[in-house]
Amino acid sequence: MKRTLSLILLTIALGACSTQKPANDPALVGTWKGLRTQTDKCQFLSWTTHLKPDGRFTITFFRDVQQTQAIQTEQGTWSAVNGKNELRTDGVRMPDVYTYQLVDADTVRYVSVAAGPSGDCQEDYAFTERRLR
């Protein structure tokens, strides 16, 4: 009986270790600014993103480059590993998923892979964010 119980506990412990998520890419932690220029299909948009070490994020969207005319703020969880970044906005079922590449320590390039239903102008969407210091 003790041997069976020990085997069950060992199996649970090993299973818990293998299901832990890898740590988020620490190079992305911080505050970033991005913008989208106006096109035929999409309006101008700028934003500030805060990626926190605890896996939470906030993004505030603005109508202007100076970021004085806020549109809305979203928050949720983020995960980034192996060149893939996933943002899960609180209250939205589907995440926004991007591939990313660090251009340098203060510049990251994103390409949309999958967007949640709340995203606009997301098909074939690529953008660059720059770190704010």
Rank of each mutant, 00 (worst) to 15 (best):
G119L: 13
A114P: 00
V97E: 13
D124E: 13
L9F: 12
A16M: 00
D124R: 15
P117T: 04
A115E: 07
T99R: 11
Y110M: 09
C42S: 05
L9S: 00
L45R: 03
M1E: 01
T48I: 14
V65A: 13
F57A: 05
Q122T: 12
P95I: 04
A27T: 02
I71C: 08
T4H: 10
D90P: 02
K2W: 04
A70T: 06
L7C: 02
G30F: 00
T49I: 11
K2E: 01
A23W: 06
R133N: 14
F61D: 07
V103L: 06
N85L: 12
A13T: 15
G30H: 03
L87G: 02
V29D: 11
A16L: 13
V65G: 04
D104T: 09
V108I: 11
T58G: 03
T89G: 11
N24I: 00
R131M: 11
V111Q: 15
Y100C: 11
A114M: 11
I71D: 07
I71K: 14
Q72N: 15
V111Y: 12
D64H: 09
G30A: 03
A114T: 01
Y98I: 02
S6P: 03
G55K: 08
L87C: 04
G30R: 05
W78S: 06
Q72L: 14
A16P: 01
V29L: 05
D40P: 00
D64M: 06
W78F: 11
Y110S: 12
S6A: 06
